[in-house]
């Protein structure tokens, strides 16, 4: 009787429907104009994407998020791997990281805006900082945990230090680096939205706050749905990439994997 419940995809779908149902009931019950029903919110979504300005805002946001993340990937991963293999590099970088780590990245925006303006550069930079920290931390941890005997085996084969970093340390640390990537991409999303809320010029964060100012509550909720969707797609994409890149690893760490 309950066999259909065990079908893949059914439980998450039920959970989603329950959430939407609860939202609908609550919205109808309270009847506040700033608390639209899910139906009203989803009705504005096609219009939002049809609107050239809104679509351009969303595209601009995603572009900045990816640029900041790519930059973090290019800088933080090699740096983290080097920290894991060289105590000197670790000693040099650790104090810097420890200083920046606890600072909310949005708090850096005023200074960064003074230097880089309120355009793309400032936002990409702050996304880069935000996404770098988890990448750095996990690459560092992953490189620290590399089996010394793998390194020795590679040394005996004649691999020099730079080649070892990319041909042995990176693949060894990859399962851990990929966990950093998943955290990092979501950090990039969070910092992307908050940077746009501070330097309100374009993007989903800007659109969200402009709509709130104009009391367009359906649009406010729709923008939150859009941001959540960006995050969800980014996370699922990373999990997809991670499984394909680290299928050879002994253990699959699957924290909060969206059911595939």
């Amino acid at each position: 009787m309950t066999r259909w419940l065990a079908l893949p995809g059914v439980p998450p779908l039920l959970a989603l429907l329950a959430l939407l149902g609860l939202w609908h009931l609550a919205a109808t019950f309270f009847g506040y104009n700033f608390f639209p029903t899910p139906g009203a919110v989803f009705k504005t979504l096609p219009a939002l994407f049809g609107e050239a300005e809104a679509a351009a805002n969303i595209a601009a946001s995603v572009k900045r998020m990816l640029a900041g993340f790519a930059l973090a990937l290019a800088v933080a991963v090699p740096l983290g791997l080097m920290m894991g293999r060289s105590p000197l590099v670790a000693k040099l970088v650790k104090p810097l990281v420890a200083t920046i780590y606890p600072v909310p990245k949005a708090a850096l925006m005023p200074i960064i805006m003074l230097w880089l303006g309120i355009g793309d550069a400032a936002k990409i930079f702050v996304i880069f900082i935000g996404a770098s920290l988890p990448l750095l931390q996990h690459s560092f941890g992953g490189a620290l945990a590399v089996d010394q005997k793998l390194i020795w085996s590679a040394q005996a084969m004649g691999l020099g230090p730079v080649k070892r970093l990319f041909a042995v340390v990176l693949p060894s640390a990859l399962p851990e680096v990929m966990i950093g990537c998943r955290v990092g991409i979501i950090m990039a999303l969070i910092v992307m939205v908050s940077s746009e809320m501070i330097a309100r010029q374009s993007g989903v964060g800007n659109l969200l706050f402009n709509s709130a100012d104009m009391a367009l509550y359906d649009t406010v909720y729709a923008m939150i749905v859009v941001i959540a969707a960006i995050g969800f797609v980014a996370d699922v994409a990373f999990e997809f990439v991670r499984r394909r890149l680290t299928f050879w690893a002994e253990i699959h760490q699957d924290p909060l994997v969206p059911s595939a």
Binding site: D147, K149, L150, W152, S153, Q155, A156, M157, G158, V168, P171, S172, L174, T246, W248, A249, E250
Partner: peptide, 20 residues
């Protein structure tokens, strides 16, 4: 002076490259 391909190690823990 350091490791070299004239001396090949074999370890108890195998130390294979798991991604290959």
């Amino acid at each position: 002076a350091g490791p070299g391909p004239d001396r090949g190690p074999v370890f108890q823990e195998f130390a294979l490259f798991p991604w290959k």
